[in-house]
Design a protein around this nucleic acid. Structure first.
Lengths: 207, 207
DNA sequence: TAGATTGTTAATCGATTAACAATC
DNA sequence: TAGATTGTTAATCGATTAACAATC
């Protein structure tokens, strides 16, 4: 088990979900054992890095044999607290928000979309991905009742900060922001960003 | 101008689009000048890092005054080769692909979606975001004719690699992959990944 | 046993930061 | 001028890698 969880570098924590994803694929493929070398080649990183990363959390392998795919998969799920389904709300029922709400890929990876919100009166009440769009005014009560800690922001950039403020005030602790803008939140709230254009722009440098 | 472009660390290149995004917001706000300190606070990084990053490409500021917002914005656009619009195709006309095809946020950031492809016969011919869905069979010819170098993959994971192979064979040089799987491509093709679940899983570690 | 692979240490590598002369 | 901020150097910090004893 974790000896010093709070001292694990953030960059290491960020790689665990990548390892988990690879192990999940191996599991689906019926593979029983793997090694740091095989994982490394699969992911395009070094085997030493994988072993070092895992060593922050315990000893999961066997010399000569490597790792049990299912064993390591389960360990990582526990370390990341993914051995349960976390409720997740989406604020913004536009193109992206609607698409994500309809996305079926969350279910087996630890999350379940339980609420979809928008301030546009023409959208409120609509059925999207099995959910009824609710007004942003309902967010605080809904978050409290459902004990939701995860939210995604998929509103236009100019509204993203005010939505973030509402989410923080409601008790949300983890925000995934699709709006192309940096958010200000208290230190105890985690924010991650997704902006496809940043990735495209970065690659364009090399063309 | 750039003295040693090919030696700029990749991590530095990756931050330039973030700076560009912040400068764009400042520009929209009518701001004329900024400083490394102001940008740093805006982005939550150190001012030294910003100055160091920019120093790889030239001298863009003035002592005592800082940077012209428009001036630095234009410089970064040139460095990233974004002083033109790049055509971009999307393969996969499902929820995510359709949403991104309809997204209007590319236009002023250097990209223009010119083609949307899918292998599902029930989708081919449909109108989405002003585009007509075409068969994947059309990709090679379309890419050649339109001189497109950028592509996004928004198909299910099990088809992502074969789509990537088609794209590479067609001459695509930059791929943004939304499928939750690592792609194998030649070294001269750039790949970036977007997987919202990875971000959610990482944050869950801290909850 | 012989071969393979782990977990860990120490060395290397690279990125970030602090500090400051130059100068607008 | 006095105050502010740059670009750059050197120091610090932290992450990655190489190597190997331990051992399955």
């Amino acid at each position: 088990m974790a000896l010093d969880q709070h001292e694990v570098p953030d960059i290491v924590v960020g790689r665990l979900p990548v390892y988990l994803r690879a192990l999940s694929a191996m599991k689906s493929g019926g593979k029983q054992y793997t090694s740091s070398h095989e994982l490394a080649e699969w992911l395009g990183i070094s085997s030493a890095q994988i072993r070092k990363d895992l060593s922050h959390f315990g000893e999961f392998g066997k010399q000569g044999t490597g790792y049990s795919v299912i064993g390591l998969y389960d360990e990582l799920r526990q370390i990341l607290h993914l051995d349960q389904d976390w409720p997740l709300i989406i604020v913004g029922a536009g193109n992206i928000g609607s698409a994500v709400a309809s996305y079926t890929g969350f279910s087996h990876r630890g999350f379940r979309v339980v609420g979809l919100f928008d301030n546009d009166p023409t959208k409120i009440g609509a059925q999207i991905g099995g959910l009824t769009v609710q007004s942003n005014n309902e967010i605080p009560q809904f978050v409290a009742d459902s004990h939701t800690q995860h939210a995604m922001i998929t509103v236009p950039a100019q509204y993203a900060q005010q939505v973030a403020d509402i989410l923080v005030a409601s008790g949300i602790k983890a925000i995934l922001n699709y709006a192309p803008i940096n958010l200000n939140v208290p230190h105890n709230v985690h924010v991650e960003y997704i902006d496809p254009v940043l990735h495209l722009q970065k690659m364009t440098y090399y063309l």
